[in-house]
Design a protein around this nucleic acid. Sequence first.
DNA 1: TCGTAGCTTTACCAAATGGTAAAAATTCGC
DNA 2: GCGAATTTTTACCATTTGGTAAAGCTACGA
Lengths: 207, 207
Amino acid sequence: MSPAPIKKPSRIQMRNRGLILDAALDVFSMHGYRGATLDQIAEQAGISKPNILYYFDGKEAIHVTLLNQLIETWLDPLAALDPAGDPVAELLDYVQRKLDMARDLPRESRLFAGEILQGAPRIGPHLETGLKPLFDEKCAVIQTWVDAGRLAPVDPQHLIFSIWATTQHYADFGSQVAVLLARGEDPHVRASNHLAAMFRAFLAPAR
Amino acid sequence: MSPAPIKKPSRIQMRNRGLILDAALDVFSMHGYRGATLDQIAEQAGISKPNILYYFDGKEAIHVTLLNQLIETWLDPLAALDPAGDPVAELLDYVQRKLDMARDLPRESRLFAGEILQGAPRIGPHLETGLKPLFDEKCAVIQTWVDAGRLAPVDPQHLIFSIWATTQHYADFGSQVAVLLARGEDPHVRASNHLAAMFRAFLAPAR
DNA sequence: TCGTAGCTTTACCAAATGGTAAAAATTCGC
DNA sequence: GCGAATTTTTACCATTTGGTAAAGCTACGA
């Protein structure tokens, strides 16, 4: 019953945990979980390896911490889908937000992609409890829009998959995109226009 | 000048190299390059570790062999895009072929995705020499179709990205898809219908 | 300024891992 | 059947890697 003696983290703790997590995000997103080493993270963070293990219980704890922090950011745009808004505009906004995230948070996108690619061994339960309910809820919203004739008769689940896939592609497959586009031009504007046109054409209800 | 004495591989060599590559595809696609161990591959293949190193020069050689074998299969559907065919039908066929590949060759898709995700460290050059020319060629074909008014005014490069992203999603993010769809139902038919509808709506030229 | 709690470093370690040497077993052409 | 070539096993090894023990240092409140 008595409250556990939770120490408030000191300034040093806040700073170093932040440094470690940022370095770990770099290393994990670049090399994957197994490919990342504590030594790499230590060097990147400018903190000795034993000192890192003073702040985190181990390699896996760092990874899980990153994933947990990431999930809320990740679900945010989907949660923002407003049932009261205009269907096409809401979904196009969602596409845009996801595309912006792929540009602004590519490390996070790749971290997540790597975890899913390997069967979500360390995040599986969170998908069930965190993602699935939100996914189901928003699919229902989209279905409502379809039933009301305010949206073309789309398959809500696979529509969301396609939105995720097309937007995250620019982060997760960024190295391939870079090779194929070659030009110094930033692909973001072109990608944005393309995806807006594609989903608008698909989503607009028949007159 | 004299031809190098290339031995034709014996029956045993054919069989064991095949067993090793198949096992390696399992292990690499599941755990990534660094996450895979020779011991795992050896056990999966039913061949001792030193024996594996009798057939391949090392872990990386196995990985590179897999990637090289994969690339030709991977480019095949894109190469089949026929400039003389009906634009919309050709592209929808391409979508369908890629989706079938995601279903039939998920290990290959994940192997490729993992490699790209980590910056294509072992396949980068092949992207330039193998993929890029074909990509440019087919983009030009699509642009021709657009210019002729036989296709909506799409951005060829990003259209191809979207086709890749949406189809490979079902293999690369399969574990997430499985959690979210939950039902025992095979997602392939629904995915196929969804993607066909989406790309048809987007690609059909304005009347 | 002094003691204590918090932080950092030094010096390790055990297990895992990619790889090798060489003997032993097997296969194959003749 | 037999000798040579190929294939497989046994017994290792060096490095890497996640992690630990304990001593030393630092910051901070009294």
